[in-house]
Simulated assay, not measured.
Amino acid sequence: MTPVIEIQEQADLRAAVAALGARYGREYFVAVTREGRHSDELWAEAAKLGYLGVNLPTEYGGGGGGIAELSIVLEELGAAGCPLLMLVVSPAICGTVIARFGTDAQKQQWLPGLADGSLTMAFGITEPDAGSNSHRITTTARRAATAGPTGAADWLLTGRKVFISGVDIADATLIVGRTEDARTGRLKPCLFIVPRDTPGFEYHPIDMELSAPEKQFELVLDDVRLPADALVGDEDAGLLQLFAGLNPERIMTAAFALGFGRHALAKAVDYARTRTVWKDPIGAHQAIAHPLAQAHIELELARLMMQKAAHLYDAGDDAAAGEAANMAKYAAAEAAVKAVDQAVHTLGGNGLTREYGLASLVTASRVARIAPVSREMILNFVSHQTLGLPKSY
């Protein structure tokens, strides 16, 4: 299932990652999850093969590709039934932001490790009272009264974050906070690197019905003291830097959704080919075949939009990429939900058994609809930004 619009190197990458995923598969993913472990073996092998940092600059050990290549990695692992969620946050969001806006010291400290998988970084933006409104973020940073070891004033970071993936295994978390603009007095977004062992940085697991090796956490920051160089990039370019990470997040979420949508569809198609109740396999009946064909079409269409978004982003067209990334995330999530639902219905009672492994995807497929931004907020974005309709808020 190689898209014709991919260049040969991308097609080769897709085939190679698919082969890696096939060696692990859904059984590995389920076993790791049930045992309360992480996908360490798959992460290590993907790192050794150079897949984790395929989007990062070559001078820091990356592959020199872009989000287009990294989305291929996540999609194919998902299609094999063993997605690596930390690909979304560590190299895609955090690695991209640091590569584009970080200081030379930050790039040297973090990018080689993010590229070879020896370091991981979580991303903290969501707050309990802010929802999808980034303007309501209450995590704030202020300058400390006394200077730090470098002579510059340290930062004091205070706030809460929720639904932050993989904090327990991440070496640091890229936190979105707000600082006061000295000229206007208004709060503006800024990003800070907070190592996991920083005093005052607390994280607590959130009990989720979602079955995945990566856990979700609530973060509590109570006057967490950070050195001046914890700030990523320019203090006055926070919004630009923030969206530099959010667009790849949406593209990678689309890849995540497409992967498990394809995985579910493949299970259903195999079952429809072999399950015989009357004379012919059930896949011979149009009531079974047509919904599966429609699910395949919608997944392929969503992939095209994802590839468009990745191409625009990698070409540096942030404005157009923002629109396309939102559309891709929306289309992929809807296609994945439909594919999973149809797969379960195709298998009937078997669709809810552990043997076939589709039931857990019912919950997982909803994640792509609500995170990192709900489908309703994407429809708001398109109606306002693309169609020029007025806001209701």
Results as ranks from 00 to 15, higher is better:
Ala328Gln: 04
Val337Thr: 13
Lys338His: 15
Ala339Trp: 02
Lys329Gly: 00
Ala331Thr: 03
Leu312Asp: 08
Leu358Cys: 09
Ala339Ser: 10
Tyr330His: 08
Ala315Thr: 02
Ala371Arg: 15
Ala328Arg: 05
Ala333Cys: 03
Ala328Trp: 00
Lys329Arg: 10
Ile370Asn: 10
Thr363Ile: 13
Arg354Lys: 12
Leu312Gln: 09
Leu347Asn: 09
Thr363His: 13
Ala331Leu: 13
His311Tyr: 11
Ala320Asp: 01
Ala328Ser: 04
Asn326Glu: 04
Leu352Lys: 12
Ser360Arg: 15
Val344Glu: 08
Ser365Trp: 08
Gly348His: 02
Val362His: 02
Val337Ile: 12
Gly357Pro: 07
Ala368Gln: 00
Leu358Ile: 10
Gly316Pro: 02
Thr346Pro: 04
Ala310Val: 00
His311Lys: 13
Met327Cys: 13
Tyr313Gly: 02
Val344Asn: 05
Gly357Asp: 15
Gly322Cys: 05
Ala328Met: 05
Asn326Asp: 02
Lys338Ala: 15
Gly357His: 09
Thr353Ala: 14
Ala310Cys: 01
Lys338Gln: 15
Ala333Tyr: 01
Asn326Val: 00
Ala310Met: 07
Ala343Glu: 09
Asp318Leu: 13
His311Trp: 11
Ala315His: 05
Ala325Val: 03
Gly322Ser: 09
Ala333Ile: 06
Arg369Lys: 14
Ala331Cys: 08
Asn350Ala: 12
Leu312Ala: 04
Val367Trp: 09
Lys329Ala: 05
Leu347Asp: 08
Thr353Tyr: 13
Glu355Pro: 07
Thr346Gln: 06
Asn350Phe: 13
Ala315Ile: 00
Arg369Ala: 14
Arg366Val: 10
Asp314Tyr: 04
Tyr313Leu: 03
Glu323Val: 11
Ala315Lys: 06
Ser365His: 09
Pro372Thr: 08
Asp317Cys: 00
Asn350Leu: 15
Gln342Thr: 15
Ala335Trp: 06
Lys308Asn: 13
Ala321Gln: 00
Ala319Gly: 05
Arg369Trp: 12
Arg369Glu: 15
Asp317Arg: 07
Ala310Asn: 00
Asp314Met: 04
Arg369Met: 14
Ala325Pro: 02
Tyr330Met: 05
Ser365Gln: 14
Gln307Leu: 15
Ala331Ser: 11
Ala339Gly: 08
Arg354Thr: 14
Gly322Tyr: 06
Ala325Asp: 04
Gly348Thr: 05
Ala368Gly: 04
Gly349Pro: 01
Ala321Cys: 00
Leu347Arg: 09
Asp341Asn: 12
Tyr330Cys: 06
Val367Cys: 06
Val337Gln: 15
Glu334Asn: 12
Leu347Met: 12
Ala336Asn: 11
Glu323Asp: 11
Ala371Ser: 12
Leu347Ala: 10
Ala335Gly: 07
Ala333Glu: 07
Ala325Tyr: 00
Tyr356Gly: 08
